[in-house]
């Protein structure tokens, strides 16, 4: 396995200071530094970002698609977490 392409890294770009990092794609690289440089060369050729995260793909823990129902269920029946659940007297603003 001497001729490998390196491991897979997921790339996250912050488009502007203050913005959250967003997944852009992935790169192959052999170490942290190369992963950052490859990510810059591949995903930031047109000033797409101000900050980069690279994460080994194997380090990401993901929920599985079958969970789409049950795993997220607990949030569905809690309408009282949304402001529209509450009534306020007519004429009240800024709330």
């Amino acid at each position: 396995m001497n001729d490998s392409q390196g491991i897979l890294w997921e790339v996250f770009i912050q488009s502007k200071p203050g913005q959250p990092h967003k997944h852009a794609g992935s790169v192959h690289a052999h170490d942290n530094e190369m992963a950052l440089q490859n990510a810059r060369d591949l995903y930031c050729r047109r000033s797409e970002g101000t900050n980069l995260w690279v994460v080994p793909a194997s380090a990401i823990v993901a929920s599985s698609p079958e969970d789409i129902g049950s795993f997220f269920e607990p949030s569905n029946d809690k309408v009282y977490r949304h402001p529209t659940f509450y009534s306020v007297p007519e004429g009240i603003t800024h709330m």
Partner: peptide
């Protein structure tokens, strides 16, 4: 380009 990949591999392993 094989030597580049081999060297990068070796470097990563050493680290």
């Amino acid at each position: 380009g094989a030597w580049v990949r081999e060297a990068a591999n070796a470097h990563a392993e050493k680290n």
